[in-house]
């Protein structure tokens, strides 16, 4: 794994995260200047460029929705995962795991749709549905990660005189971090996609040009939205890849 420091110019050019980021920024900022291109590709369209909202605004709102829901899910999910792996919460572990496993069979789009009858239209149901859905992989992987810490390591940590908090923060969480991160990554990637669909429940996200384009038979809108969402997802995924390498750097030494 290449560290972030000490990269040669060649590394920069072949780095998925860097390339993706450049592409994403170029797409978001430069989409308006592609208007002539879309006009040429779709001569039949009166409006070849989605201009009802700026792509910068939509991207930021999209990221805020994904970020907000993911952050909430990480806080609640790791908290719950930690709680059920402590002696006082162990009784609830089975139930939580069952809920997390069963819940993940529910398609995210259905969960999003169900939030509307319960909460109503707008960004709130999207935020709540995304948070709830993101909780499941985070919880599942937090429990799996914490349970995956070798018993001998915990025995040694306690035997050397670490208190419960020291064992948790210095040993258990750092060792579980890669597995927890994999859950967060799953959650965030799902949320990037679900947030796009959330345009159908009244949240303004990068899905909006796609939905508007689909409903109005404007393929140019669809492509503009789809390109940016896809780039965003790939960049975030590459970012997680980098983060995962950093978290497990000790195992590659």
């Amino acid at each position: 794994m290449t560290g972030m420091a000490g990269m040669s110019p060649r590394d920069w050019l072949t780095d998925r995260l860097m390339l993706g980021m450049v592409a994403l920024v170029a797409l978001v900022l430069g989409m308006p200047s592609l208007k002539p291109l879309f006009a040429a590709l779709y001569p039949g369209l009166d409006r070849p460029l989605y201009e009802a909202d700026s792509f910068v605004r939509l991207t930021l709102d999209h990221m805020a929705l994904v970020g907000g829901s993911s952050l909430a899910a990480i806080l609640i999910g790791t908290g719950a995962g930690i709680a059920v792996t402590r002696p006082w919460g162990r009784e609830f572990r089975g139930l939580l795991e069952t809920v997390a496993t069963m819940g993940q069979t529910f398609p995210p789009v259905a969960v999003l749709a169900l939030a509307v009858p319960v909460i109503g239209f707008g960004p709130e149901p999207a935020l709540i549905a995304l948070t709830l859905y993101a909780l499941l992989p985070v919880v599942e992987n937090t429990v799996a990660g914490l349970e995956g810490v070798a018993p001998a390591v915990l025995d040694a940590a306690r035997g050397l005189g670490m208190g419960p908090a020291e064992v948790l923060f210095r040993v258990e969480l750092p060792l579980a971090a890669p597995v927890i991160l994999a859950g967060v990554r799953t959650a965030v990637i799902i949320n990037v996609g679900t947030a796009a669909i959330a345009s159908t429940v009244g949240a303004k996200t990068l899905g909006l040009p796609i939905i508007v384009g689909l409903n109005g038979s404007n393929q140019a809108y669809v492509i503009q939205g789809a390109l940016i969402v896809a780039a965003l997802a790939v960049v975030i995924d590459a970012g997680f890849d980098r983060l995962a390498g950093w978290l497990t750097r000790w195992s590659n030494a």
Partner: peptide
Amino acid sequence: PEELRRRMGYVIQSVGLFPHW
């Protein structure tokens, strides 16, 4: 308990080194 343990050494069969340190 923590104070007590810090005053003693503890070695186990499976060693239990912290792999990330």
